[in-house]
Simulated assay, not measured.
Amino acid sequence: MKKVSVLLGIGILWGLLISAKGDCNLKNLEHNPHTTKYNPFAEGLQISIESANLNASEIVVLEIEEEVDLGFDTLEYLPLGFNAYDGMELAVEDIVVLEEDEEVYLGFDVALYLPKDFNAYK
């Protein structure tokens, strides 16, 4: 009985190995649909090239306005004619830039090491 089961097992194994034999004589691998290569780096490079050559007229901006429900009527708590955006226009002339000159203290007199009548801003 052992010999029969061993022979039967060898026969099944031989049948599986024969059926798994493939055709390895492919001459042109580019047309084989099973060997397609996916390269995510090439795809990212293509996307960056397309976005670098993008015209401003091709850009579509979607503005989604969401309505916020606070659960109560805000008109009861605001004055008449209230505009939250009133005075929000900013002009470049209205910007005040404060520049403070910081005094650097080196711990010694630098005039001793510079030539006479030295002007750093000349």
Rank of each mutant, 00 (worst) to 15 (best):
V68Q: 08
L29I: 13
I64K: 03
F82E: 03
D86T: 03
V104N: 06
S5H: 07
D109V: 02
A42H: 05
E100M: 06
D86V: 02
P115D: 01
P115R: 01
I12D: 04
L112E: 15
A42L: 12
G107I: 10
L29K: 08
V6K: 12
A84T: 00
Y121C: 14
L106Y: 10
P40Y: 07
I12S: 09
L98D: 07
G11H: 01
D73A: 04
T36D: 12
M88C: 11
E67V: 05
V97D: 07
V61C: 07
V104M: 11
F72W: 04
A120L: 09
K2G: 15
N25L: 06
T36C: 12
K116M: 13
V104K: 09
F72H: 02
F72M: 03
I95T: 04
Y121W: 13
Y121D: 14
Y85L: 14
I64H: 00
G11S: 11
P40F: 07
E76M: 01
Q46H: 07
I59Y: 06
G71N: 01
S19D: 09
I95A: 02
L8D: 11
E103K: 11
L90R: 03
E65K: 05
D86S: 08
F118Q: 00
L26C: 08
P40R: 12
G9F: 08
A42F: 04
M1H: 12
D86A: 13
T74V: 14
L62S: 10
E50R: 10
E93G: 07
L26M: 09
E102C: 07
E58N: 14
F72Y: 06
P79T: 03
G107L: 08
E50Y: 03
I59G: 12
K122M: 10
D117F: 00
V92S: 13
Y85N: 14
L80Q: 11
E43V: 15
